[in-house]
Write a protein that binds this DNA or RNA. Sequence first.
DNA 1: TGTTAGCACTCTCCCTCGATGAGTGCTAAC
DNA 2: GTTAGCACTCATCGAGGGAGAGTGCTAACA
Lengths: 346, 346
Amino acid sequence: MQMDERKRKILRAIVLDYIATAEPIGSRTIARKFDLGVSPATIRNEMADLEDLGFIEQPYTSAGRIPSDAGYRYFVDCLMDPQVLSEEEKETIERESTKRIHEIQEVISHTSRLLSELTNLTSLVLGPQKGKSTFGKMHFLPYQPGQVIMVIVKENGAIENHIIDVGENITVEDLQHVAGVFNQKMRGYSLGQVKRSLLHEIYGELSRQRQLIDNTMDMLREILSDNEEEERIYLGGTLNMLNQPEFRDLGKVKTLFKVFEENEPLKKLLHPHHEGLNVTIGGENTLKEFRDCSVISATYKVNGLTIGAVGVLGPTRMDYAKVIAIVDFMTRSLAEVLARGKPRGY
Amino acid sequence: MQMDERKRKILRAIVLDYIATAEPIGSRTIARKFDLGVSPATIRNEMADLEDLGFIEQPYTSAGRIPSDAGYRYFVDCLMDPQVLSEEEKETIERESTKRIHEIQEVISHTSRLLSELTNLTSLVLGPQKGKSTFGKMHFLPYQPGQVIMVIVKENGAIENHIIDVGENITVEDLQHVAGVFNQKMRGYSLGQVKRSLLHEIYGELSRQRQLIDNTMDMLREILSDNEEEERIYLGGTLNMLNQPEFRDLGKVKTLFKVFEENEPLKKLLHPHHEGLNVTIGGENTLKEFRDCSVISATYKVNGLTIGAVGVLGPTRMDYAKVIAIVDFMTRSLAEVLARGKPRGY
DNA sequence: TGTTAGCACTCTCCCTCGATGAGTGCTAAC
DNA sequence: GTTAGCACTCATCGAGGGAGAGTGCTAACA
């Protein structure tokens, strides 16, 4: 048995209606709502075929049909009318993206909020991967007696400062000397790359300031370690899930929200199978908690380099066309923002 | 009608049982579970009195009784056995608090997590109020061509850095001069306090670096404005609410979680009526969303100065004795941690 | 051969009804 | 003042039945 034009039309009708109403739909209703020019009986026959093909299923005997994961997949791949955003929506996104932005955090939280507001679903945003956390330059500034501020500029432009104890009898010259040696020896290295020999050299040149060096190295270790914290995924609009009829069950809500508190599963959800836009439907998700959910995700690039991803999580019964359009537009807008005014910190 | 010893015993039994089971309790069950030496009928009479006094109520005719807000209040004020934490619990808290802590953020998130884990309720933590954000000292460091890093040390010890554009033709001497003037004129002032005359002076002395001054002032305005962001309340264990039978209703969950997303209502919840430990029961909360909830909150001090507050939010039917003990112990532990190794940023 | 009308059948949903049981308030006896 | 007895109330639960939506099958039709 093969798909023909009429079967396609009927499948399309079923998916569209189910997305809109969340109710199983029967042959009679299809005939009434969608003008297919055939009687309910004919539609019934076709529906039996579509069920054999695995595209639709019945929650129970003599209920209407609902799309299966495969049905949604076929719909997304072959049946869906690509949608363009309304001017209003485009404007909302662009208005946000023209705001001046200082910190990468702000970009992420804006994006996340916008995505969830526009889709009424939950948004996932993976910020730009930090550039390699390699040592750029170091400065010391006076702070309290016995303490100095160590300012580290990484090669990716991020700046961090920490206070370190130096003891009372360190002079400004000592500090300048230490900073000078570090700046000369360590530029471009991450801490993992600092070889023993290099350490040796540093300790050799700075034997007098032993304790200062130790403290400095401790801090550097912390700052330059590729902190996995950075890969945190930002969630937005989790409460929107509560509005979905498929989450009327408190147990489901609980397991879902529990997963939201962890980072790893979300990362898995967002990590793309390939570059560009991904649609993952229901059981295609590896995690069983999300077998009723779909994810539309997309990576974004700056200067031809993929640096992050955004996504939208919703029930399998989501408005794919619309969400895809939003995610697509959003990644473009985001890439633009990042390319234009490179915010600090990545 | 007055409370007597037997009425007190019965009220205590009702509250204790309802806290444990979340089920209305009847005279027969009280007689069976609690050995009061009187028959159910006697208890019934007393319960009628307690209802007249407003301490208990019936969800519907011929159901058992449950404590009213006033009943809980009487219980907390007069009937409750103060509880001491188990050694195990004390140890858990103290183990956490001996960890070395760098950032105030970490202290807050630890506290929040611990509180919600120990109580199985939702925790609220208001971090130490930042000290006055007055200008301490300023440094400039080289960054990119045309940009410098401005490092601001506030008088409360917090350090922030920002990048500002300076144009190509600024020399190191110019920068030093600017920093010098600011350091001399502005120490100890918050931005609101910078008088026109002072600004005048600064502009007068630095007329050559007009643009740099403008940019610097912009940044300072941002950094020194008493950012209300700082007063954010940290929530922990919000999901614990889902385990409470009183939130089996999805509608309630939704409104509750919606409030959780805002800051102002939570602040109101936590802001103490008086120093030390506060118990706010049900309708005593001003917000209607929390009329089924109670809050145990407490302020904490460092050097005799109240600097923040923690709290636990749960259904009115919570184990007051235990939660009070935990919150109390926690604030002490927190004060200790903060007094010992003063983390940066407040 | 594909399409359609008719029809019996199935299954959920919702309402009603009665039994059950917990708990009460009242009364009268102790 | 306390207690036993009793009639009464009301939520909960399960069974039963009607309504309604939808199906699959069959036979007639183009």
